[in-house]
């Protein structure tokens, strides 16, 4: 049972929740850009929420599933079609063998996630399936998916009773993700140590100005286009560890937000940090889309994180119950 790449996309990689515990060796965690997308797609098909998924960017790859499978798409809506029939995101789908899955248009969001029930049969590297492109390790051969790649799947199930001659069956429930994402005009941040270096006007501009995601943004970082932020005085900083979501001030006054494949250390002022809860909302913005920042206290950020975690757990449990009920109805597991 395999997933074959019929046509490659812009950047389709295997990702999971990231490779943790090796940053002191210069090995960055990587992982999905939008952890909610991964979490929801996996939950819908009954996988562990952090199971390896395929992250897709438009134009995304076309795949052939050579055996019947249960799949789910989440994150960006990239106009998915199974055998030329449009299929929704955030819903479990059962597809027949020899189905072609392709993505026709970027409807909303930037990073799509494809989860397949029981997961991908790949080897992990340092405890993670995330693709580390510079290291050429993890994921599928340490690289983005290319034409004719064959990604083996863990387990085949017969869904004949479900499909009954159909090519796609949509399971009768949808994961509501509305409350999980925030709004682009209110990306919450907490103060960084470099905030104090900004002059009073720039401190104000950080939360009153509109910024646009620059076209040269990628999985490493989102460059923002906005008013140049001025510092009170020039600071020479020693390089230090920088986590996901750190907003660095470049010498030209522009900002860069560190995304999934970011470098581990940086020497630019850390003016602020995008809160964990809003990182997926930011990750789903496309080049030229605009955003605004809203400053909150670190304790509030943690409170929001806790609430999001509860919502995700609730969603996972709800998916699990529906799926178990549905599977047992068809005598599947």
């Amino acid at each position: 049972m395999n997933l074959r790449v019929l046509q490659p996309g812009l950047l389709d990689t295997v990702q999971d929740a990231g490779r943790h515990g090796y940053q002191h060796l210069g090995i960055n965690p990587g992982g999905v850009m939008d952890r909610i997308g991964m979490y929801v797609a996996n939950s819908l098909v009954g996988n562990d929420p952090a199971e390896a998924v395929i992250e897709l960017h438009f134009p995304a790859a076309a795949f052939l599933l050579d055996a019947p499978a249960m799949i789910a798409l989440s994150g960006a809506d990239l106009g998915a079609m199974v055998n030329d029939q449009p299929v929704p995101i955030n819903r479990p789908l059962v597809v027949s063998g020899q189905s072609v899955l392709r993505f026709t248009r970027p409807v909303s969001g930037a990073c799509g996630y494809l989860a397949i029930r029981h997961g991908l049969a790949l080897d992990s590297w340092l405890g993670s399936y995330s693709t580390h492109l510079p290291a050429g390790a993890g994921g599928f051969g340490g690289r983005a998916l290319q034409k004719n790649d064959v990604v083996p799947l863990r387990l085949a199930t017969s869904y004949n009773a479900v499909l009954r001659q159909q090519q796609v069956a949509e399971l009768p429930w949808t994961a509501g993700t509305g409350e999980l994402y925030g709004a682009a005009d209110r990306i919450h941040i907490t103060e960084g140590s470099g905030f104090a270096l900004l002059n009073a006007h720039a401190q104000e501009q950080l939360t009153t100005s509109s910024f646009a995601v620059a076209p040269q943004s990628d999985r490493m970082g989102f460059r923002l286009q906005g008013p140049p932020l001025k510092t009170e005085h020039k600071a020479e900083l020693l390089s230090a560890g920088v986590p996901l979501g750190t907003i660095q001030l470049l010498p030209n006054g522009q900002l860069i937000v560190l995304m999934a494949d970011h470098q581990i250390t940086g020497g630019y002022p850390r003016v602020a940090h995008v809160i964990t809860v809003d990182q997926p909302t930011l990750a789903q913005l496309r080049p030229r889309q605009e955003l605004r920042f809203a400053m909150i206290a670190p304790d509030t950020a943690e409170e929001l994180l806790w609430q999001q975690e509860q919502r995700l757990l609730f969603l996972q449990n709800a998916c699990k119950l529906r799926l178990e009920e549905w599977l047992s109805h068809y005598g599947l597991h």
Binding site: H20, G21, Y22, Q23, H24, P29, L238, S239, A240, G241, V242, P243, I264, T265, T276, E302, L305, W306, E309
Partner: peptide, 21 residues
């Protein structure tokens, strides 16, 4: 504690806030 990042004169400590809570 998910990661420790030592540098010249600093040590960043990454943690799983939800798990701790």
């Amino acid at each position: 504690i998910t990661d420790l990042i030592p540098a010249y004169a600093s040590l960043a400590v990454c943690y799983d806030a939800a798990q701790i809570r």
